[in-house]
Design a protein around this nucleic acid. Structure first.
Lengths: 170, 170
DNA sequence: GCATCAAGGTTCAATGAATGAACTTGTGTC
DNA sequence: GACACAAGTTCATTCATTGAACCTTGATGC
């Protein structure tokens, strides 16, 4: 963790958060993990991240207790978000809304409060119910935007409406 | 911006946001800007960031329209957040809450809804009024935690209760 | 008008991280 | 046992970060 050295001198939650998620690629790995991606090869091909970097990031995230590595079916590994990661959802959602507003393009995915179907606000809250929505209660479905590579297995699997954190079947 | 090359291939708001704010130090510069820091030297000494990096980041942020460089008093320059940056507040707040929860330490600053005095929730919402709170309506005051260098002029100025975005008089 | 000083940079060599290709290891499946 | 595929590791090249030193500009004092 190269970031730690200087960031740690900041007595600030933001600095400490960035020690863990502030490096290149890390937040995109976590984004995919919220989508339900769990396997090394799915992260690798969906993100287009170098193999060595992905291995380093997954190791760092498991060391930090944000992800857990465990044995999945057919002898494959699974990288799954721990509950400690759930608090990152509002940050990721706010970043997404901000990034989309900057360019004004169509959203590839739409995120709603599963209980009422209302689209989430910029803070990750449900404007209808006036409550913050935790990630397990967020539903995602395809919007009008088009993913870069619609043929990729992960993007194919994300065509179906789903809940955040539900394991993605590729 | 080196991040752009690969991130841009992601048709995703998070990837686009990270092209602008995803590099080392950038979010901490913006944090200080929300606190009211406006001058090159205040960013420099408060963050402990290398001069060349600070210059690069401020240039990139003004190029992106997130900050504005303008002439201040006594021939000094001022770097001020534009309205385009205000949407980053919920992301910064969510990151701070998450980073603080990780270590469970005392907060150096407490952020409240200025209208009612209630401390903000993890999503940047006011739990009392059940509304998202935009940065201009956020009040900040010292908490029980201690900043790393209490003698630094910026930290001295932040001892006083204030509104987010109010220019800091150092 | 000139010297002084501080703010706000630029330049540079050394270090450290990211990249992409090639190679290795381990675990099912036929 | 041979094969295929997931999940890595290794390595040379490229690129970004760092910290120290230097430069430039505008205000102020004399």
């Amino acid at each position: 963790m190269a970031l730690g050295k200087d960031y740690v001198t900041q007595e600030c939650g933001i600095a400490r958060a960035l020690e863990i998620v502030g490096e290149r690629w890390t937040l995109l790995v976590l984004r995919d993990a919220f989508y339900g991606v769990r396997r090394y090869n799915d992260f690798l091909t969906h993100l287009g991240i170098p193999r060595a970097v992905l291995a380093t990031r997954l190791q760092a995230l498991t060391d930090a207790g944000v992800m857990e590595k465990r044995a999945g079916e057919h002898g494959r590994h699974e990288y799954v978000l721990t509950e400690a990661a759930y608090g990152l959802w509002p940050a990721l959602h706010a970043l997404r809304v901000w990034g989309r507003d900057l360019t004004g393009s169509d959203p590839v995915y739409v995120f709603t409060h599963a209980a009422c179907g209302t689209e989430l606000g910029a803070y990750g809250e449900c404007p209808e119910c006036a409550v913050p929505v935790p990630p397990v209660e967020v539903a995602m479905r395809r919007g009008s935007g088009v993913p870069k590579d619609p043929e990729h297995p992960v993007n194919r699997a994300l065509e179906q409406p789903r809940r955040l954190l539900d394991p993605l079947v590729v």
